[in-house]
Amino acid sequence: MGIETDNKEIISSIRENAKLLLSENQVDVIIGYSEGTVPLSSTPIIIRKEEDVDKLIWNNLCYINLARYLAPLMPQLCDSEGNSLKIGIVAKGCVGRAVNLLAVEKQIDLDNIKMIGFNCNGIVNRSKIDLEIGEKEILDVSISGDDIIVKGHNWEKKFPYDQYINELCKVCQIKSPSATDANCIGECQELESIHDEFSDIAEFESKSADEKWAYIKDALQVCTLCYSCRQACPMCYCNLCFVDQNMPTWFGKTTQFTDIFTFHLIRAQHLAGRCVACGACSSVCPVGIDLNIITRKLEKIAKERFDYTSGLNAETIPPMMDFKMEDEEEFMLEED
């Protein structure tokens, strides 16, 4: 019953489809998830041979958005001439969204990509569990029925699954890739539009400007600028990030609050209407900073103003990259 059973079904469908794609030579490699070596983790893996498909897994700790390895395309996914191999990618809904958006932004050629779709059942909020356990070593994490069971040396704690998944996952409307059968094997759906209440950011929105500022300041006080949020983001694929530009240097790289805040603020702006709501930025943060509410807020604005949801298909251009004569400009300041 519950999540545990769902996962078993998902795993067997992923393996079956991966095997099919490899055996029919539809793809050269499969990129998917394998079992992690420490609790609360999983490891992305590249599968090249049919007999290795049993290494592929799905559990609710597969938080990396695998589309992240497609742009810039990592060398392991290229042939000896540097051309893209045919790639199969294990795709939950937000991976599918990222793949679509990367295609729109001309970073990948969809002809080389085949998604192995399935209905994602959410990602466990690692830092929330870590924070509640505190300074005790977690030795094992498993799911039994609808509970996350966390075990240590002589102790055990249960967390109700539906409360301990990412806030984003609680309201997610796109659980399987939005794709056609032509570029997806397994579960997929063709979506024109979705109805998202954005209730995950309601609490943050209700704060005053001062309270929001205090919240962000507090969240960022532990940031080490390791850039794992940027590196994990499937939509942060610039060859040279604005913070890394040093001829001339545009932004400071110290851990003074202004530098840290500027990085996070501008990264969020670059993702305006482009966030695919995978939550990888928060899941990978080594110090547990959860600030995807900012990109979610921008996603909401893009939805309200332009009726745009990123990654629903591989054609619609994101609003910040597009221009339409009929765009309303009511936010422009009028001259007196």
Partner: peptide, 17 residues
């Protein structure tokens, strides 16, 4: 080394910590 670097996302957490 191809295999070792496969899953790396290129962040600095290993080095900084």
């Amino acid at each position: 080394w191809d295999e070792i670097s496969e899953s790396c996302i290129g962040c600095g957490s290993c080095a900084y910590l």
